[in-house]
């Protein structure tokens, strides 16, 4: 049976939208945009404190975007917590899976540390590192560890909000000392970026793992790695 809305009107509308989008995109890439911001950005990378251009944009040129993005992540987790408690975890894994998890989790944490460090000059950085930490948490949750290896609620709250706090405080302190909001002095840029990225990595990893649990962590967690 043909439903007119679903089978005729929406597809026709989408073809029209697609045509318009395709035409505009064609004109945009064949037009006179030239290098866009590439040349400007690449030229300033040496002044940014890191040599990986993407990290320069994320943590320096457009650091304010990244600050708000950490706030988005925090808002999502707080929203998830407001909706209820986490479901009871999975049953503890049998020895083979458990053994593999016990091997993999330290490796993931180690890789996260490497990702964080390498982001200064090669692809990598806080988000990739945070994602690895988060996946360590997911793995622990799947293997039946309570609360995905996350710490008690008090410390977890500190961990998930740390990224926003360190980022915002760094920005404000730089403003107070006269450099301007989030304007790093060139000599300190590298270390300030590393500081912010470290805090962001911990927050992102903890937030992703906590979001995976789907609700407020259980009242009596086991102590374990900070994943």
């Amino acid at each position: 049976m043909i439903r007119p809305l679903e089978h005729i009107i929406i597809p026709l509308g989408l073809i029209a939208v697609g045509g318009l989008l395709g035409w505009s995109f064609f004109l945009a890439v064949t037009g006179e945009a030239g290098e866009r911001l590439a040349a400007v950005a690449l030229a300033r990378v040496p002044d940014s404190g890191v040599s990986n251009p993407v990290t320069s944009v994320l943590l320096n040129f457009r650091a304010y975007d990244t600050l708000l993005e950490l706030a988005v992540l925090l808002a999502a987790l707080l929203g998830i917590w407001s909706l209820g408690a986490a479901a009871p975890g999975f049953q503890p894994a049998a020895s083979v899976l458990d053994g593999m998890v016990n091997g993999f989790v330290p490796l993931l944490i180690l890789s996260a540390g490497y990702m964080l460090w390498v982001g200064a000059y090669a692809p990598g950085g806080a988000f990739q590192a945070g994602a690895l930490l988060g996946s360590a948490g997911v793995m622990l949750a799947l293997a039946g560890h309570r609360n995905a290896g996350l710490p008690s609620e008090g410390r977890l709250r500190l961990l998930v909000a740390l990224g926003v706090f360190v980022f915002a405080m760094t920005g404000l302190l730089l403003m107070v000392v006269g450099d301007g909001f989030l304007t790093y002095p060139p000599s300190l840029a590298k270390w300030l970026i590393l500081l912010i990225e470290t805090a962001a990595t911990l927050s992102i990893g903890a937030t992703l793992a906590a979001a995976y649990l789907g609700g407020r962590p259980a009242a009596r967690p086991t102590t374990g790695e900070t994943a």
């Binding site: 304010y64 600050l67 708000l68 706030a71 925090l74 707080l78 709250r157 500190l158 998930v160 909000a161 926003v164 706090f165 915002a168 405080m169 920005g171 404000l172 403003m175 107070v176 000392v177 006269g178 301007g180 909001f181 989030l182």
Partner: peptide
């Protein structure tokens, strides 16, 4: 020392959000 009220208006509530997240009680 200089204070720019523009970034302050966005950042102060973020710091506040951190404070109330950490001490929900």
């Amino acid at each position: 020392m200089m204070i720019d009220a523009l970034p302050l208006s966005v950042t102060l509530p973020l710091i506040g959000a951190f404070a109330v997240t950490v001490s929900p009680g």
